[in-house]
Design a protein around this nucleic acid. Sequence first.
RNA 1: GUGGUCGUAGCUUAAUUGGCAGAGCAUCGGAUUGUGACUCCGGAGGUUGAGGGUUCAAGCCCCUUCGAUCACCCCA
Length: 458
Amino acid sequence: MLKIEQKVPIYRRVKQELNSDEVDEKNNFQKFQAPRGTDNISVEDSKFMRYIRKIFFKLAEERGFEEVFIPAFEDVELFKRSVGEGTDIVEKEMFLLEERKEGQEKKFALRPEATAGICRKYIESGWVNLPQPVKVFFFGEVFRAERPQAGRFRQFYQLDLETLGSKSPVSDVEIIKFAWDFLEKLGLKNLRLEINSIGCPKCRPKYIENLRAHFESYEKSLSEESKARMKKNILRILDSKDEKDIRVANLAPRSTDFLCPECKEHFDSVKNSLKNSNINFEINHKLVRGLDYYTKTTFEIMPYDDFEGPKSSLAGGGRYDNLLEMIGGRSTSAVGMAMGVERIMAELKSQGIEPKFAKKRVYVAFIGKEAESESVKLSATLQSAGFKVLKPSASLGISAQFKEANKLGVEWVVMLGEHEIETNTLILKELKTGVQSVILREKVIEELVSKFQVEDDE
RNA sequence: GUGGUCGUAGCUUAAUUGGCAGAGCAUCGGAUUGUGACUCCGGAGGUUGAGGGUUCAAGCCCCUUCGAUCACCCCA
């Protein structure tokens, strides 16, 4: 065994050996930190991520959605156009990239969400020619140059579901029901669904007009921020956190009272289908979207606490009948939703829900050369029977092998030695209880299957 | 972008008025080459986030910066 003498940390040794004047310490010895708001998933969290993704993929595929891959960055104009005026998202909250080529200036932005990229792909790849509607899902990281706070990061994961090319309220309900069922399948309790309809370009102007008249008549009672919102983005006053604003907003006219016949029928149909699906919902008249391309249905799902009321939302979505046209496609109706994966993870933890994976893991221990080659055969047999087989990571003594099995959290250990080979048996030990038994080699699969009360992992 | 609080080993943290950076857990090795956890013994692990200043002396005081956290702005 090599013994390494390293009493002095490497950076100090180098520093001592070199003349410190010759060393640019900053460049050679800098300790790195993760960029702000990016390192939000620990190794322990990875099993939550895998659990969430597994259930999402399974449900999406069951319900006829196809996975879609999109670039991590797109032309900044794509996002600009979809975001619209009256918000400082582009200037303040997107990561901008520049391509440096002589005489050219092309700007890109890291994707701040998935919808715009998916719509671009729909147009560019000619998905209009596929059977409509096109149903897709997405799971990946998105980027926002915000100051991090609770549940808000600069790089985080979103899962996303879109149905493109359908005007029907059936699609709205399909998306909402997916979001609801997905969160329930994860094991979350106390969920609350809120819906609203914000109309379309035909009926919304009349609503905005009435809303403006209302807020103008109460202007003195509004906060300073909301006075500014009157000009910039009046709908946002409705979800202000300021108590003065809340009082005025509660008296404000409701978008659902101004819906045109088409939008009203659509909203009624959504409500009826939800009732028929036995999904409870509340109508939240203040649930609006700040961006122009949203039409008709909006919804959010959040955990609800009997004492504290609704918590911040886990899922949000709605209909966007105007987006595809705004970014250069044919007029195409669409509806979708997105969830922040870290927020779901945080809620799972706060509700005490642990990710469940079937643990069909077996550690194969052996003593002696002969047993080693037998254990290779045995491992293969176990693997082909669907068990996850773990073997000693190095040539370890039997004591160390058990130690390792324990460290890995394996429940069952199979052990082979000279005695066992002679008698064609093996020892099967449950680590939790310490109980072990000698069984015939042929019976091992049968025995383990019964121990695990097999539950399908995939 | 604005404001508050915070940063000591992988994790949780101690350090009196500015006076030798210490522990628990985890890790590694040994007691233990046919049995892990429990136990006992031992080792390793720290430029106190980074840079500068004040001081005989800085984890502690001051400035800058990076990061974390909370609220605001914003929320696709």
